[in-house]
Each structure stands twice: as structure tokens, then as C-alpha cells.
């Protein structure tokens, strides 16, 4: 096939049509993404609103993406990372809102959770209001309903012997890892965040 014949062929028309559709669709989605983008601040405000039923002031005490931030993470006996803190916010009522990610879930995927660390007189009391923020490769997260997640509150380390969602063992492991790193982190905040 000559070059001229190619440009007159059906193949060329097909490629051009598909490319045009892809370009227009891409441009449309880019514009809409700019207009409809939900930033971190809005997500935090939504989470606070879901938990407290109203908006509340907060200040950022930890942001893993902030320049110079020392990463708070946990590792297991083999030196593999099991979980890390993503964000922590000091709420106006003195409690902390923490977002952490637990690793070693199903297919080595991860689960990110939000939780509130209840504080009284600058002393950590318990984790509460656990909710799933995001997950990767976990196919059974629908098992983690609100009533199931409410059972994940407390102030003791989490493991599969005391917190297991039947049928979703690996995903539970990731949730436990996320909460364990949150637990370890909030204990460092006793006496007030620096």
C-alpha cells in the first residue's frame, strides 16, 4: 500500500475518527475536572460534617506530602511497612481526625481509613468514628458496613484475633494495620501536638 493509498483508505478514516472522539472527550473531561475537582480541604470538611453533623474548624498537624514532613510509619518484624499516617487534623473540640493507610491487604493492596482520636485533658482515650476513605485492590470492602466499622473503635492494638471481618481477612488486616498506625501516632500527641 502506498502512502497516498493509505491516506485514502478506510483504516485511516477509522483512526482519524477514533482519535477525534478521544481528543474531544479528553478535552471535555479536562475542563470538567478543573471545574469539579474536589480538593483535600473539601474532603476533610465533608468527613467532619459526616461525623459531627456540622462544620468545624480544624488545623493541620500532619501532612505526609508537606515539604520536610517526617513520615510516620510502622513496620513488621521483617522490616516491611504495614501502615503510615497520611494526614492528621486537630479539631476545634480538642479531638484529632486522622487519615491513615494500612498495607498488606488483599493482593498486597491497601485501605485508607479516617478515624477520630478522642482526647480528654490532652490524654488519648479511644479511636472512634472509623470510616473507609479509599482502597486499592480490595474486592470485599462492601462487607465493611457502618455497623462493622463501629466495632473497630477502642484503644487497644488491632489484630485478626480480636478484629476480623469474616470472608475479608486480608482487607481486615489492612484496616487493622491502618488503625494500629493511627493508634501509635495519636499516642505521640498526648500532651498536645507540636
Amino acid at each position: 500500500m502506498t502512502v497516498k493509498a493509505f491516506f485514502k483508505s478506510k483504516t485511516f478514516v477509522c483512526i482519524v475518527v477514533l482519535l477525534c472522539i478521544a481528543l474531544v472527550a479528553g478535552a471535555l473531561l479536562s475542563i470538567m475536572n478543573d471545574l469539579l475537582f474536589v480538593d483535600d480541604a473539601e474532603r476533610v470538611a465533608r468527613t467532619v460534617n459526616n461525623i459531627y453533623g456540622q462544620a468545624m474548624d480544624y488545623e493541620i498537624v500532619y501532612d505526609e506530602q508537606a515539604e520536610g514532613q517526617v513520615i510516620f510509619a510502622q513496620t513488621n518484624d521483617q522490616g516491611q511497612e504495614t501502615g503510615r499516617i497520611n494526614n492528621a487534623y486537630l479539631l476545634a473540640d480538642g479531638n484529632y481526625l486522622v487519615k491513615s493507610t494500612g498495607l498488606q491487604g488483599y493482593k498486597q493492596g491497601s485501605v485508607s481509613v479516617w478515624c477520630v482520636a478522642q482526647f480528654a485533658n490532652d490524654r488519648f482515650v479511644a479511636l472512634s468514628d472509623v470510616s473507609v476513605a479509599d482502597y486499592d485492590k480490595q474486592t470485599l470492602m462492601s462487607k465493611f458496613t457502618k455497623s462493622v466499622l463501629d466495632g473497630f473503635g477502642g484503644n487497644q492494638p488491632y489484630d485478626l484475633s480480636n478484629h476480623l471481618v469474616s470472608g475479608a481477612t486480608y482487607s481486615t488486616n489492612a484496616v487493622n494495620n491502618a488503625l494500629n498506625v493511627a493508634l501509635a501516632y495519636v499516642k505521640t500527641l498526648e500532651g498536645g501536638a507540636e
Partner: peptide
């Protein structure tokens, strides 16, 4: 849309609107 590439073209168009819908619902 040529008949030969109609299915990929349809999927492309449908995927665009599904992505748009996801953005709208998330917002």
C-alpha cells in the same frame, strides 16, 4: 463513525459520560 470501529467508538463515548457522571456525583 465507520462501521468497523463503531464498538470502540461507542465505548469511548460511554466512558466519557460515565467519567463525567462520577465527577458530578463526587462533587
Amino acid at each position: 463513525i465507520p462501521n468497523e470501529v463503531r464498538i470502540p467508538a461507542f465505548v469511548l463515548i460511554i466512558a466519557t459520560f460515565v467519567t463525567l457522571l462520577r465527577m458530578l456525583l463526587d462533587k
